[in-house]
Amino acid sequence: MAEFFAMGGYAAYVWSSYALAALVMVGLLVATLKALRGAETTLKALEGSRPPRRRRARNGAAASPAAEVGEG
């Protein structure tokens, strides 16, 4: 086991390479998941804040463009 970690005397070079790759890849993944969660929470909050208005606006637009103009 000790021999495995020694990497033939090149432990510092080999293990820092693997550690750096892990750090960058895990870091990117964590940052991505955080951004996704944050955006989804914001969207839910926005949608939850005024759902009736949104639905009415969309139905109005589908029915006739004039309805949407009249509403705004």
């Binding site: 993944l29 991505t32 951004a35 996704l36 955006a39 914001t42 969207l43």
Partner: peptide, 25 residues
């Protein structure tokens, strides 16, 4: 990771348009 980031970008776009219509409305 790209699929996750794309999902986040799309949600972000949705937020932008919602805020825009809110500001205009």
């Amino acid at each position: 990771v790209v699929l996750l980031r794309l999902r986040a970008e799309i949600v972000q776009r949705k937020i932008q348009t919602m805020r825009l219509t809110e500001a205009q409305g």
